[in-house]
């Protein structure tokens, strides 16, 4: 298991360890099955093209899950995810890697909780932020 991150040690502007994903069409099918989202634009290329898309595209919710992975991995077993938000601005297609990244924007204590806000996003190979978002975690003290 990863080493626990403590609130005391977090600094504004610190980067979260990135999480690299290599989604494939097979992963989209697995995600469709696991989530119950069978909208055909995620696995049927003809259907996608009839919807003015060039290819099947990643489920927004799968990208949301990748950002969840970024946060739960960073906060460790003793951390609590309080909020996870993202917007699907750009489409991502299977066969190209996406990287979940984040940076600490605010560290504060509120109602007994030791909180950290982060700006988070998914970035494609061109460095475009297709899925910007934000998250808040509660971390333990040393």
């Amino acid at each position: 298991m990863a080493e626990q991150v403590y609130w005391d040690d977090v600094q504004d502007g610190a980067e979260l360890p990135p999480v690299v994903k290599n989604p494939t069409t097979q992963q989209l099918v697995k995600y469709a099955g696991a989530s119950g989202d069978y909208y055909q634009i995620h696995y049927d290329k003809d259907f996608a093209m009839n919807n003015d898309l060039e290819n099947v595209i990643l489920h927004g919710a799968l990208k949301n899950a990748f950002l969840g992975h970024l946060m739960t991995k960073w906060m460790g077993d003793q951390g609590d995810l309080k909020r996870l938000a993202c917007q699907y601005r750009g489409m991502d297609i299977p066969g190209t890697p996406v990287t979940a990244k984040g940076v600490v924007t605010r560290k504060y204590q509120e109602q007994g909780a030791n909180l950290v806000d982060c700006e988070i996003w998914l970035e494609n190979e061109k460095g475009e932020k297709t899925t910007p978002g934000s998250a808040t975690v509660a971390l333990p003290l040393r």
């Binding site: 909208y39 919807n51 949301n64 938000a85 993202c86 917007q87 699907y88 978002g133």
Partner: peptide, 12 residues
């Protein structure tokens, strides 16, 4: 007929 998901904001 077309539907896009714009984003999600979860509170836990």
């Amino acid at each position: 007929t077309r539907l896009l998901d714009g984003g999600s904001d979860w509170e836990y």
